[in-house]
């Protein structure tokens, strides 16, 4: 446990000091990007890992917040008002997403979220009057809280880190709370949970709202970082990326999606310097991870470490349906 604390402390120091040990402003900016996508990946994994619901439409919520922010800033709103409006609109959109997609679970949920995400993409792309269509919207100014200009990359990075740390802390409290336990229960045995007195639908809906809030925060940070938003932000690829981050890093954990986000974003940045085949890489990684490492990198590595250090092997993960012995008739 102390080793774990030390590791977390070390990671925190490294993260805070990142502007000092990476070569340049571009790398600091990549650091911010990773943190933003880590929040986004956590948002998506709250549903995948803890509610058992795979959303392929979260880029719709991410970009809804981003577009609202960009449009409001363009219309002359102040920064705080624009941020508040972006959060409010994204939460309203999340409520609609959740109300519709929670009509079903499993594969139906995937299909509906995908379709809803595509609606947002279609709006971003076609509603030229509002979104600028293909040209997107540029945002000229980053906020300057307490007089500190976030236009400086390292300042923006530290501000993002503060939001990220807050989000991770809240996320941890959330998943270890009684509500988090209820949510996991609905993932494993929804029918049983109903019989025990839980309102399964409302639990899922609430989790979806929290997930939407995180996606909106990530979307707002994204627009401030890029100072630009355009339809690809809402595309299916953009919805698939956080899913990949979550399942590659390790779904249902906190560290997993963060590590996944770092890996995917690093690969994306490195790869894009050499080849323009990001989609091929993304798709290929998806196939390989799902086929060969379905548990994700973090739990997989943890298991290897644990075995290496001779601790008791973890219980075999038994699927809900196979743990039961059918009584003889």
């Amino acid at each position: 446990m102390t080793a774990r604390r030390a590791l977390i402390g070390l990671a925190a120091v490294l993260l805070v000091a990142l502007p000092l040990w990476v070569p340049g402003n571009y790398d600091i900016s990549v650091g911010s990007e990773i943190l933003i996508y880590a929040i986004f990946a956590l948002s998506v994994d709250l549903l995948i890992g803890f509610a058992g619901l795979v959303s392929l439409g979260h880029a719709g919520l991410f970009s809804l917040a981003g577009y609202t922010l960009a449009v409001c800033l363009g219309a002359g709103f102040g920064q705080p008002a624009a941020i508040a409006l972006a959060l409010a609109v994204a939460l309203a959109g999340t409520a609609v997403f959740a109300a519709l997609s929670l009509r079903t679970t499993g594969v139906g949920f995937i299909m509906i979220t995908l379709a809803l995400g595509q609606i947002m993409w279609g709006l971003a792309y076609r509603w030229v009057g509002l979104t600028g269509g293909d040209n997107g919207i540029s945002v000229s100014a980053r906020p300057a809280p307490f007089g500190i200009s976030l236009a400086v990359p390292s300042h923006f990075y530290e501000a993002t880190l503060i939001v990220f740390a807050g989000a991770v802390f809240a996320y941890r409290v959330f998943v270890e709370s009684p509500f988090g336990a209820s949510l996991r229960g609905t993932r494993d045995q929804p029918r049983r949970m109903t019989a025990l007195g839980y309102n399964v639908w409302m639990i899922r809906f609430s989790a979806f709202m929290v997930s939407g809030l995180l996606a909106a925060i990530a979307g707002i940070l994204f627009v401030f970082r890029a100072e630009f938003i355009s339809p690809p932000t809402a595309a299916l690829t953009a919805s698939a990326e956080p899913v990949l981050m979550a399942i590659s890093g390790g779904s249902g954990t906190i560290l997993g999606p963060i590590v996944g986000a770092a890996l995917v974003e690093l690969v994306k940045n490195v790869a894009s310097a050499y080849i323009s085949r990001w989609n091929m890489l993304l798709g290929g990684t998806f196939v390989v991870i799902v086929m060969f490492m379905p548990e994700g990198l973090v739990p997989g590595t943890m298991r290897l470490l644990r075995r290496r250090f001779g601790a008791r092997p973890p219980a075999p993960v038994v699927a809900a349906g196979t743990a039961e012995r059918k009584p003889p008739p």
Binding site: V173, F174, S177, P178, F179, S182, M193, L196
Partner: peptide, 16 residues
């Protein structure tokens, strides 16, 4: 989980 099902605590996301 069974006890929690009948307790108001089940909605609480703020405590461990």
């Amino acid at each position: 989980l069974s006890l929690l099902g009948l307790s108001g605590l089940r909605w609480n996301p703020f405590v461990r």
